[in-house]
Design a protein around this nucleic acid. Sequence first.
DNA 1: TATATATGAAACCATTTGGTTGCAAATATA
DNA 2: TATATTTGCAACCAAATGGTTTCATATATA
Lengths: 105, 105
Amino acid sequence: MRRDIFQAIADPTRRAIIALIAIQAMTPNAIAENFNSSRQAISKHLKILSECQLIKPTNKGREIYYQLEVTRLKEIDQWIAQYRKLWETRFNQLDNLLNNQNQKS
Amino acid sequence: MRRDIFQAIADPTRRAIIALIAIQAMTPNAIAENFNSSRQAISKHLKILSECQLIKPTNKGREIYYQLEVTRLKEIDQWIAQYRKLWETRFNQLDNLLNNQNQKS
DNA sequence: TATATATGAAACCATTTGGTTGCAAATATA
DNA sequence: TATATTTGCAACCAAATGGTTTCATATATA
């Protein structure tokens, strides 16, 4: 099981779950009502999101509220950051230039 | 085949390929030298990256140079942006508050 | 021209993924 | 207490994924 945050956000259903509970914490049942697949399928997604700490459960009687741990998304942000300066400073044009020169491994 | 950009960057080998050719465009062989898996395995990754236009091939004789289309990563950046303001403005604390109140679907 | 090199495509395979159904445990409610 | 509700876990399954080996094609080079 790889179970890193990049793999966690790769699934569109999981991204939709993230978007849902970003507004407010929700129970598995309430989350599942927003999708066509079964509650158990959603629970599996919640498990994956929990395992990489993108969401955090809070027990309340027999219900469990899942809430977004938004700071975990900083990891993605940091990965993107190293490329952001490339598209901001037009270094990609430098790449075009390099592409027209002789190269060897 | 889902083949969207989130799925493309989910694989650690593909992220390593992106990091490699961000410096300069490279041929499949040159890229494969940096990994333990076969050239064909790398070629499959390049195909996936090409299909969602994260990289762009340029023919040069019998060689093909793959170059990063860095602007495609903006799509990830835009997805992250909607959550960035959450961790910047401490709205996640508001989530904690909501979690302690009664909720219904 | 004959040979070597660079690449992509196809066939195959083991593992992972995302889904299902069924069940058990814990908590609420009649 | 008996029943209903909420949830997680296990078993199972089809499809996707990431890898391999083999082969065909195109371009350099001897």
